[in-house]
Amino acid sequence: MGKYMLKTAAIILMAGLGGLGFTSCQKMERPELVLIPDDTARLNGPLQLYLGFEDSPLDSIHFDEGTATGISYVEGVHGKAYQGSATGQIQFASAGKLAEMSSFTVAFWLNTEKHEGGAQCIFMLPNTEDFWGNMFATIEGNGNPDDNSMQLKFNFGPWVDFSGSNGMERLPDMYGKWRHLAFTYDENTSVFSAYLDGQAIPLPAAVANPEANGEPLGPLAFQNVSKFVIGAYQQHIGIQNDPEAWMLRYTGMLDQFRVYTKALTAEEVNTLFASKK
């Protein structure tokens, strides 16, 4: 009987200690729960490249940092800005979803001085099998001290040349100040649009409504896409041989560089300009 009572007491004591242990565990401090935000909407949204140039060559959409050479950061329209040079560029190892876009908007602020001879490249979406790449914008030289207009060329398959001929006026009053540019193409309507400081630029019908083989251009299909470069031609990053003498890097400033995989509306473009963000 004594042994039975001793065994029972031991069981009760162990149960008590177990209960205390359980209660103690419940009261232990735990590390704070960290919630990881769902970035699916941002990563899969239409804005697929955003460069604010805040002392860094960082794409704020994918947190992908490009390789910058020969550039610096200066005061811009909003925060800091890209300052190019004769050797400056930012190279991204991948174009990401820009390679697949069938519509687009490219929008940015620029502030540059005149240069003589050659053509400076603002940006380029390369094509490893084509001399001209898939999409780019360039600024031709201007040696006229009395002319502040700019000959800018934009290519996305069709050429858009603001040359002062064929109904395409040169862009007015473009040097020595911040100007906002945006270019859009909508695959659903086959309409190309260009904007300066939030306002649509009048374009000839053949430019605004590009065709292929007599039919509306429709969805774009970029080919052999590799990398993405700011401030230089694809030849400057080792694609399609060495750069030719007329191929110059962009020496001006850039800010708030965006690429969307859709065509923004005129109102949305104007909002980019007005907000300066």
Rank of each mutant, 00 (worst) to 15 (best):
M1W: 06
M5K: 12
L6C: 08
K7C: 10
K7N: 09
T8R: 15
A9I: 07
A10M: 15
I11R: 09
I12S: 01
G16D: 10
G19Q: 03
G21D: 02
G21I: 03
F22Y: 11
T23Y: 15
P31K: 10
L33Q: 05
L35K: 11
I36G: 04
T40L: 06
R42F: 02
P46W: 00
Q48T: 03
L49M: 10
G52P: 13
D55T: 11
L58I: 07
D59T: 02
S60V: 05
S60C: 07
H62S: 13
F63D: 15
G66C: 13
G70V: 00
G84E: 01
I90K: 13
F92E: 08
A95M: 15
K97E: 15
K97F: 03
L98Q: 05
M101N: 06
F104W: 03
F104C: 14
W109R: 12
L110T: 10
H115S: 10
C121M: 14
L125C: 06
L125I: 03
L125E: 10
P126N: 04
D130L: 14
F131T: 11
T138W: 00
E140S: 09
N144W: 10
D146M: 11
S149K: 00
N155T: 06
N155V: 12
F156H: 05
W159E: 15
D161C: 04
F162N: 00
N166T: 11
G167L: 00
M168Y: 00
R170D: 00
R170V: 00
R170K: 12
L171C: 10
P172H: 01
R179L: 07
L181D: 09
A182S: 12
A182H: 11
A182F: 13
T184G: 04
Y185P: 10
D186H: 05
E187R: 15
T189A: 02
V191L: 03
V191K: 06
V191N: 08
D197C: 10
G198V: 02
G198L: 06
I201F: 00
N209F: 01
N213H: 13
A221L: 03
V225Q: 02
S226H: 06
S226W: 01
A232W: 00
Y233R: 10
Y233K: 11
H236Q: 14
I239M: 09
Q240V: 12
Q240C: 07
P243F: 01
G252M: 07
D255Y: 12
Q256D: 14
F257R: 13
V259S: 02
K262Y: 06
A263W: 00
E267D: 15
N270Y: 08
T271Y: 13
F273S: 07
K277L: 14
